[in-house]
């Protein structure tokens, strides 16, 4: 493989993986607090739409990002209310959000199809971008990508080195105990779901403001569901999330490169790659770990907490 093939491939890998990375980080926070938010696909697409529409109308990328975060927060708030306060079925609630979000974004997005809006452009980081191969791939990217790198580090430090991260993990692991130790389980869960939703919204915005740079029907195309699988693949760990998203960005990259080289395989099969890989990855993860505990899943994931109903 020559560098002229490799560098564009790695470049696409990073760029395609970024929206996933935001979403996976967001979902990791939510699931670490014990709330399974399957609405990613819907939150992402609404974030993508809100980001694009706002940036298009205002001309400001920053406003676009803020809008995407607000949209993500609002949709997640619905999920937080249903799963934390009502104690509804979290799987169904997530599915409902996907249906609602997809429909809403497609409906409101109609007028924006095919419009050219502002988009993030590459900002090279001086010196670092001169490193062979890696410099071009990692340090000549758009600001959102740098932001995602920093978020990985921040979230990792938050989860494992601070008291609040400890409280979050305890809430997802064993809410009864966390509650008895004075942690406000409801508050932690609401915050985690909402902040997670903001990050997921940003993931959508990276699609509409950078990677695809524009609006089209069903823009996210199942990326949200892939993200759900990647959270499991990365064992709910932000550092591993980075690697997992690279792998999936790579799969998308390979798909494009192969399409570009005109290989005889029909495009339909190439486009199946991410979905089939997701299934394979899930199988592989469970094959290699066996029990839920070893998988690293938070102990109280998808479990409703009600202080007074404990046995």
């Amino acid at each position: 493989m020559t560098l002229s093939f490799l560098i564009p491939l790695l470049d696409v890998t990073i760029r395609a993986g970024t929206s996933l990375l935001f979403a996976v980080l967001g979902e990791t926070i939510s699931e670490r607090a014990g709330v399974l938010n399957l609405g990613i696909e819907g939150i992402m697409i609404v974030g993508a739409f809100a980001g694009f529409a706002t940036a298009y109308e205002s001309g400001s990328l920053v406003l676009g990002l803020i809008a995407a975060m607000i949209a993500g927060a609002l949709l997640s708030l619905i999920h937080a209310f249903l799963s934390v306060t009502v104690g509804a079925n979290q799987v169904i609630s997530g599915v409902a959000l996907v249906a609602f979000g997809t429909g809403l974004a497609n409906l409101l997005g109609r007028p924006y199809i095919g419009k050219l809006g502002p988009k993030f452009s590459r900002v090279a980081i001086p010196l670092l971008n001169k490193i062979p191969v890696i410099g071009k791939v990692l340090f000549d990217q758009d600001p959102m990508i740098y932001m995602s790198f920093i978020l990985v580090i921040i979230i990792y430090l938050f989860l494992y080195k601070t008291k609040y991260g400890l409280q979050l993990r305890a809430t997802g692991e064993d809410p009864q105990s966390a509650d008895a130790m004075g942690v406000n389980v409801g508050k932690v869960r609401y915050l985690a779901v909402i902040i997670g939703g903001m990050l997921i919204g940003l993931g959508g915005a990276h699609l509409s403001l950078s990677y695809v740079a524009g609006w089209q029907d069903s823009l996210t195309a199942g990326r949200g569901w892939v993200a759900v699988a990647l959270v499991i693949f990365s064992s709910w760990n932000p550092k591993r999330a980075f690697l997992a998203c690279l792998i999936f960005g790579g799969i998308e990259g390979i798909q494009f490169r192969l399409q570009a080289t005109g290989i005889a395989l029909p495009t339909y099969f190439l486009r199946m790659l991410p979905y089939i890989s997701t299934i394979l990855v899930m199988w592989f993860v469970h094959l290699s770990s066996g029990t839920k505990k070893k998988l690293g899943a938070p102990g109280a994931l998808n479990k409703f907490f009600d202080r007074e109903s404990q046995a």
Binding site: I92, S93, A96, F100, G103, L104, L107, R110
Partner: peptide
């Protein structure tokens, strides 16, 4: 009215969300 096919999905989503919230009153 030239609304997209997925517009119905909005309705599906809302029904589900409201049904779930309605469980509050069952509980």
């Amino acid at each position: 009215l030239a609304l997209p096919v997925s517009a119905v999905q909005i309705f599906i989503g809302i029904i589900l969300l409201i049904i779930l919230a309605g469980d509050f009153f069952l509980r």
